[in-house]
Computed example of a mutant assay.
Amino acid sequence: MQDAAPDEAQALFHRSDLRALRNDLALALRAAAHHGLGEGVCNHFSVALPQRPDWFLLNPRGLHWGEVQGHDIVLVDAQGRRLAGSHEIEPTALFIHAAVHRIAGKACVMHTHMPYATALTLTDLRGLDPALSQNAMRFYGRVAVDAAYNGLALDAGEGERIARAMQGADVAFLGNHGVIVCGEKVSYAFDDLYYLERACQAQVLALSTGRPLQPVQSELAARVAAQTMGERLQSELFFESLRRSLR
């Protein structure tokens, strides 16, 4: 993919607020690796620039999430051109992330193949039951399922199909594939990513007992979701604790 280096991109990339955003994205990647949510050097996190929503920061190709630092993050545009940064970029990241930013209108996009969430995409459930555990209830009304697996996302059409299948949801379970988690901020998206995997883990463990599951009434699940989303300080505090504990 052709590189491009407009003066505007270079100026933005080195601004202090964008440097902080790069550091946040890198921290989220290291935290995901720390909690076992990564997969080799695959999968990607991205965040759109507030000043230019058609440009976004992205983790580079070939680096394990556990080693990514702010200076490793790359700036790209919706056409897949590298605008700033020294590393290469991976094609499937561009096709999925560019489409979700543009079509679904999401600021921060995290795509993973984390184990328990992915396990649920392999079943006829196709995802999380948001009326089971308290952790699951935070996602009530926020989840979409895309059951149409079409292989690797190696073209813009597949990325756009996934983005449209999300129908504006914050979380998408991709059949036979993995998940996408989105948020207004890096800290919010990471908090949801972490608790989504915890909720999926609890559901898989409950299913493994062979005993009937006991979901709560939908009204209660909706109320818990509203309570959780109405106060995101806990998300910020969690992210700051990761900043102190992970280097």
Rank of each mutant, 00 (worst) to 15 (best):
H87N: 12
E88D: 13
I89W: 02
I89N: 05
E90H: 15
P91D: 14
T92V: 15
A93C: 07
L94R: 10
F95H: 13
I96C: 09
H97R: 04
H97D: 05
A98Y: 02
A99P: 05
A99L: 02
A99M: 02
H101E: 00
R102K: 14
A104E: 06
A104H: 07
V109A: 04
M110H: 13
H111D: 00
H111R: 09
P115Q: 09
Y116L: 08
A117M: 03
T118S: 10
A119G: 10
L120V: 02
L120C: 08
T123E: 04
T123I: 06
G127E: 00
L128H: 00
P130V: 04
L132V: 00
Q134W: 12
N135F: 14
A136K: 07
M137A: 12
M137P: 01
F139T: 05
F139V: 01
F139H: 05
Y140I: 04
Y140C: 09
G141T: 06
R142C: 09
R142G: 02
A144H: 08
V145I: 13
D146H: 08
A147N: 10
A148S: 13
Y149F: 15
Y149P: 08
N150D: 15
G151S: 03
L152P: 11
L154D: 14
L154M: 14
L154N: 14
L154R: 12
D155N: 14
A156Y: 12
A156C: 14
G157L: 11
G157W: 11
G159W: 01
E160H: 10
E160D: 11
E160P: 11
E160R: 03
E160N: 07
A163H: 02
A163M: 08
M166E: 04
M166Y: 10
Q167P: 06
A169Q: 00
A169D: 03
D170F: 06
V171C: 00
A172E: 07
N176C: 08
V179C: 05
I180Y: 11
V181S: 01
K185Q: 15
V186S: 06
V186P: 00
Y188N: 15
Y188K: 12
Y188V: 15
A189T: 06
A189I: 03
F190R: 08
D191H: 14
Y194L: 15
Y195P: 00
L196Y: 09
A199W: 04
C200G: 04
Q201V: 03
Q203S: 00
A206P: 04
A206K: 01
A206L: 03
L207K: 04
L207D: 09
S208R: 02
